[in-house]
């Protein structure tokens, strides 16, 4: 407890942390801007509220990131918490244009967790790291009382090297730039919801959880001047585009008909009352680049298994700064907002 600490800009709605504060939406954003950054004070002068930071060190640029993983249940169609923890951190590094080098793994385990479960999760982490070409170099293990950690929580941190000729960051997005989406959306969130207690539904869908650094490398290897990369995670395509628009200070428009939504995702979203572009992904990215470079980069993406369905969905514009506008299938327009917090089924 810090003596005399007061929130400089009181969080208006809640006196306590709510689930929504961890949803990656507006509430999370408020927590960062109005609590963490002011509280950290001078220590956070260089901090950017982005998923990974690039720090210059001994003539090199290192990307650095950390993430905690909490998912219920631990295993879901197409993946588990361990795979998620490695791929998520690998992807955050990749979005800075970095090749991941080393990852740390810290476990908070619930008393009573089956060692067999832990073993399967750990194995998946090793395999995911190998697939991404990264090493798991250090870690930590803590155990908490039964009933406290949903089985386990995992925190990973990672460092990666940004090649000298790569400059990928939000500030480079500019009006006229084209936006590419790497594939169909909503798979991860739908797969996890299908096994969420109380919501269970049957589906063949699997999470798209995957390391994107290989795809990014093949994109960076082209002549295309990629301005910005962003993986789609919580809050889905909508949250990613809104965050880009807000950070870059430009508007974004995209065509809904160009965003592929698998029929099963659409069906599940239908009865849960969710918008597919708000649903989480773990293996998709958007790239923002000059329109003239789109074809070259698309060609490279199509040659990679994780970018086979990549398409241009829209563009950056100097109209409506900070706002994302979608062209609907009927040819009208709608404003796209990021979700407030966690995705909840809407029934009535």
């Amino acid at each position: 407890m810090v003596d005399g600490w007061t929130c400089p800009l009181p969080l208006r709605d809640y006196a306590k942390v709510t689930i929504g504060h961890g949803g990656g939406g507006q509430l999370t954003d408020e927590l960062i801007r109005h609590l963490f950054l002011p509280a950290f004070g001078d220590a956070a002068v260089d901090a950017t509220p982005t998923d990974s930071a690039v720090v210059a060190m001994a003539g090199h640029r290192l990307a650095f990131t950390t993430d905690s993983y909490v998912v219920r249940p631990l295993f879901f169609p197409g993946g588990n918490i361990g795979e998620l923890a490695v791929n998520g951190t690998v992807n955050d590094l990749a979005m800075a244009g970095a090749q991941p080098l080393a990852l740390s793994t810290a476990f908070v385990l619930e008393e009573g967790l089956e060692l067999d479960v832990l073993g399967r999760v750990a194995t998946a982490m090793g395999e995911a790291a190998v697939r991404a070409g990264a090493r798991l170099v250090t870690g930590d293990t803590k155990v908490v009382d039964a009933g406290q950690a949903d089985g386990m929580y995992i925190t990973t941190a990672g460092i990666g090297l940004v090649p000298a000729d790569v400059d990928v960051r939000p500030e480079r997005a500019a009006p006229g730039d084209t936006i590419i989406l790497s594939g169909p959306v909503g798979l991860h969130g739908t797969a996890v919801l299908s096994v969420r207690e109380g919501l269970e539904f049957g589906t063949e869908l699997r999470s798209d959880c995957a390391p994107l650094n290989g795809l990014v490398q093949s994109m960076l290897a082209t002549d295309g001047d990629i301005h910005l990369l962003r993986d789609l995670t919580r809050g889905g395509l909508a949250a990613a585009l809104c965050e880009i628009a807000e950070t870059a200070g430009f508007g974004i428009r995209f065509d809904e008909s160009d965003v592929a939504v698998p029929p099963e995702v659409r069906a599940a979203c239908g009865f849960l009352g969710l918008d597919p572009i708000h649903v989480a992904n773990e293996g998709k990215l958007v790239a923002i680049l000059p329109a003239d470079d789109a074809d070259t980069v698309l060609e490279a993406m199509h040659a990679h298994e994780l970018g086979a369905d990549a398409v241009v969905i829209g563009a950056v514009t100097d109209e409506h700064p900070g706002v994302v506008v979608a062209r609907t299938a009927l040819g009208a327009h709608r404003i796209v907002d990021r979700p407030l917090g966690e995705q909840l089924p809407r029934i009535c």
Partner: peptide
């Protein structure tokens, strides 16, 4: 109506 922009059309 809002989702599809019907009012604008």
């Amino acid at each position: 109506i809002i989702r599809n922009g019907i009012d604008q059309l």
